[in-house]
């Protein structure tokens, strides 16, 4: 109802250009649907999270039903549906899956919770703490992933250094899109 009235967000010119270029990459598709994940990543980068309006923006840009975009956005774990972390903040993805667990992954996660004052799944402006499933970095378990950076062989004692480093030099996931 009133979708055009409610919609207030726009993509930046740069994002629009990226989306247009990506649409050319799937010539066998009858629709622009294959670009939906990329467009959602871009919307999240530019608007911080996928609000209802951000999803409507993706739907309009790709000529897709809003319901389809909503269905996709709610399926994948990297999409944030609520406001919390700022686009410049660091998402700490701490693995606790089997290889990391065997070498103290849960103890490291608890150390992150205590130092940040956040529970797993929560965020403040600067940090989001995620209990992540295997991040395919088992060769130096326990491991955390923050944007493009991996923190190796973690122990609860090293957590303070990691947070201090991220305070100085954040690694927002938004940089990658």
């Amino acid at each position: 109802m009133f979708r055009n009235v409610l919609m207030s967000l726009e993509f930046s010119a740069e994002a629009q250009k990226k989306i247009a270029a990506l649409c050319e990459r799937y010539p066998d598709s009858a629709t622009k649907q294959p670009v939906v994940l990329a467009a959602l990543h871009l919307a999240q980068k530019e608007h911080g999270y996928l609000s209802d309006d951000a999803m409507r923006l993706v739907a309009k840009t790709l000529d897709l039903p809003y319901a389809h975009v909503y269905g996709v956005a709610t399926f994948y774990t990297m999409f944030r549906l609520k406001a919390g972390i700022q686009p410049t903040g660091s998402t700490i993805r701490m693995c606790t899956n089997i290889s990391c667990m065997l070498r103290g992954g849960y103890e490291v996660l608890e150390a992150f919770e205590n130092k940040l004052g956040l529970k797993r799944g929560e965020s403040n402006g600067k940090f989001q703490l995620v209990e992540e499933e295997c991040i395919a970095a088992c060769e130096f378990a326990p491991c955390a992933l923050v944007g493009t950076k991996y923190f190796h062989d973690l122990t609860p004692e090293k957590v303070g250094e990691v947070i201090a480093e991220l305070e100085r030099d954040p690694h927002p996931e938004a940089e990658v899109v």
């Binding site: 290889s99 295997c134 395919a136 088992c138």
Partner: peptide
Amino acid sequence: ESEPGTCKDRL
């Protein structure tokens, strides 16, 4: 690659 314990394709 996301099978827990597997980290070759990433490298």
